[in-house]
Amino acid sequence: MSTIAEKIDAKDLSKKFPRSPREKVAGYVVAGRTLDKCRAAIAGTLGEYHYDCPLDRLFFDFTGIDSVKFQEFVATGADDAEVAAWIEQNSKQTEKREIIQWNNDLRFKRINEMPIELQEFLEGYIDEFIAPKGKTVYYWFDVYDIEEERI
């Protein structure tokens, strides 16, 4: 008998990392990571991660996709290609240039370009979890990729 995690191909995020926020699904950065966390939330394998967190909200707010409806569709067992098609059908964003601009804004966002509340949080977070590894954060997404050992 298969488990929910197997049906929806959910990663156990207590043992593995979700995708980098740089990895795209349906042409959107953040979407792959959001999808991994959504599947893990459904399967109960989210670990310390959070689905529908502020990073996920950036994706949902930009596309106009409801996070609950997204989760309901993902729970059907849809694979990445099916989820990508669903995102394309349900996103309010249809202009390729707007999507590219949004992707690049996030992909190359520096800490000093973020709201001061996030800068304040990241100041301590980077000192505690990133800097001891001897890595330099150039862009916001570096925080995820350094911590999750991709760079």
Rank of each mutant, 00 (worst) to 15 (best):
M1H: 15
T3P: 13
I4W: 02
E6Q: 14
D9T: 10
A10G: 11
K11V: 03
D12S: 02
D12W: 00
D12M: 01
D12E: 03
D12F: 03
L13F: 04
S14V: 11
P18W: 01
R19M: 04
R19V: 02
R19H: 14
R22K: 11
R22S: 08
R22F: 05
K24T: 01
A26T: 02
A26I: 00
G32K: 09
L35N: 13
L35W: 12
D36C: 00
R39H: 09
A41Y: 05
A41W: 03
I42T: 12
I42F: 05
I42H: 08
A43H: 00
T45K: 13
T45M: 06
T45A: 04
L46F: 09
L46C: 09
L46Y: 07
L46A: 10
L46H: 10
E48C: 15
Y51K: 12
P54H: 12
F60H: 01
F60D: 00
D61G: 09
F62S: 05
F62L: 09
G64M: 04
I65Q: 00
D66N: 01
S67L: 05
F73G: 02
A75Y: 06
G77V: 03
D79M: 10
D80K: 12
D80W: 06
D80Q: 06
E82Y: 08
A84D: 07
A84Q: 10
A84P: 06
A85S: 07
W86M: 06
I87L: 02
Q89M: 07
Q89R: 15
S91M: 04
Q93Y: 03
T94A: 11
T94E: 11
E95D: 12
R97N: 15
R97Y: 07
I99G: 01
N103C: 10
N104P: 04
D105L: 14
L106I: 15
R107V: 14
F108E: 08
F108M: 13
E113F: 08
E113H: 06
E113K: 08
M114I: 10
P115K: 08
E117A: 13
L118H: 11
L118T: 12
E120R: 11
F121R: 04
F121I: 12
G124T: 07
I126D: 09
F129A: 13
I130W: 02
A131C: 09
P132F: 05
G134P: 11
V137Y: 01
V137D: 00
W140N: 10
W140Q: 12
D142A: 04
D142G: 05
D142C: 05
D142V: 05
Y144P: 02
D145L: 09
I146P: 00
E147R: 02
E147S: 06
E148L: 06
E148C: 13
E149C: 01
E149H: 02
R150W: 04
R150G: 05
I151K: 04
I151F: 10
